[in-house]
Design a protein around this nucleic acid. Structure first.
Length: 195
DNA sequence: ACCGGGATGTTCT
DNA sequence: GAACATCCCGGTG
């Protein structure tokens, strides 16, 4: 990482989640344990998306999704896993991008310690709950401001452009909204949760 | 490689 | 009481 890396500004996030998702590819997520390049994402659009946590309106859990763009929405699922999203669109409109996989950059030793089960380094961040465990992201980071370098969790642009033609697929692990092609990933990367 | 089941607890019906 | 934006392990081929 060079000094030319800068935080992604709030205006970037204040757009539709499918647009934000595509452009988050190849940006850098920084967390407590290190950093990684974002290589897989999914879009969730509360207003018209039955798979979105915000589809049925505001609740204590999804409150952050309704807030300002550029913040982190962290939720707990399956009794043991944390997952992290970048909040999109204007305040009052719920939308988010689920961060699904990273290519590790810095702090790999700490990530290995945080994910002792991982047999290979490509298993460290190859899933939405894996990357949170690897980077040390949890409930205390819900609502974190991703646009501030001082924030424990933030996102940097180090100059690498998003892929011109990312791979596209349906989203993973859903029982509704299964037909939307709202998953994007860097086709050539080894750290993808699933082909 | 692929597939099936269990872990584990919050959230919402 | 069911569902859940998941992961891991142990089976089989």
């Amino acid at each position: 990482m060079t000094t030319r890396a800068r935080v992604v500004p709030r205006s970037f996030y204040a757009r539709a989640p499918d647009v934000v998702a595509c452009e988050l590819l190849n940006k850098v997520l920084v967390g407590p344990n290190g950093s990684g390049r974002i290589v897989e994402v999914e879009a969730y659009d509360g207003a018209r998306d039955p798979a979105s946590h915000a589809y049925r309106g505001l609740t204590p859990r999804n409150e952050v999704m309704f807030g300002r763009p550029g913040h982190l929405y962290v939720y707990f699922t399956y009794g043991m896993h944390w997952c992290a999203n970048a909040v999109c669109r204007d305040e009052g409109v719920a939308a988010a991008v689920l961060l699904r996989a990273l290519a590790p950059i810095a702090g790999v030793e700490r990530m290995r310690a945080a994910r002792a089960q991982a047999r290979r380094d490509r298993d460290l961040c190859s899933g939405p709950a894996k990357l949170c465990q690897a980077l040390g992201i949890g409930s205390t980071h819900n609502g974190a401001d991703l646009t501030r370098r001082a924030s424990t969790v933030h996102i940097l642009d180090d100059g690498m452009a998003p892929p011109r033609s990312p791979a596209v697929s349906t989203r993973i692990g859903l029982s509704v909204g299964v037909d939307q092609l709202w998953r994007w990933y860097v086709a050539t990367d080894d750290n993808i949760s699933r082909k």
